[in-house]
Design a protein around this nucleic acid. Structure first.
Length: 135
DNA sequence: TTTCTTACA
DNA sequence: TGTAAGAA
């Protein structure tokens, strides 16, 4: 049987350029995440080779970033996957990270509302000063 | 051409 | 993270 072209994806391998293209990020970012210890692609010589699992890991990294988590947060989460096969500690960490993220976002929202309110008040007095002058 | 590393912005 | 530079 011919397995040289499209092996079942379980064994598929990617180069930085291929995977970065598929994930819509730059090869530079992938290497950066590696420097930070979030991924450890295998090597063929000095060239990085990404497996299906590396691809899944990269997707989680990207997902985490989209949700506003830091690379450090994501690394903590990822490091737990390789630990307990039941992933209970991992789930617990994620729950905590999510709750903190929500608290932070709510705090930011409150700060923004407060600033918006200040700005509106200043704007209003400025607007009032004009109508008073006119009257 | 592609990828790698290192250094700097 | 982007870009630049030199090497394989």
């Amino acid at each position: 049987m011919s397995v040289d072209a499209e092996d079942p994806k379980e064994n598929r391998l990617y180069s930085v350029s291929e995977l970065s293209r598929e994930l819509a990020i730059t090869p530079r970012s992938m290497r950066f995440y590696e420097d930070k210890g979030l991924i450890s692609p295998s090597r063929v010589g000095t060239t990085r080779v990404y497996s299906i699992r590396d691809r899944a890991r990269m997707k989680l990294i990207i997902r985490g970033k989209q949700l506003g988590f830091t690379l450090r947060d994501i690394k903590q989460y990822l490091d737990l996957y390789d630990a307990d096969p039941k992933h209970s500690a991992q789930k617990m960490l994620l729950l905590k990270q999510i709750q903190k993220k929500m608290r932070d976002l709510n705090a930011m929202g409150a700060a923004i509302s407060a600033t918006l309110s200040d700005l509106e008040n200043i704007q209003q007095s400025l607007l009032n000063s004009f109508t008073v002058d006119a009257a």
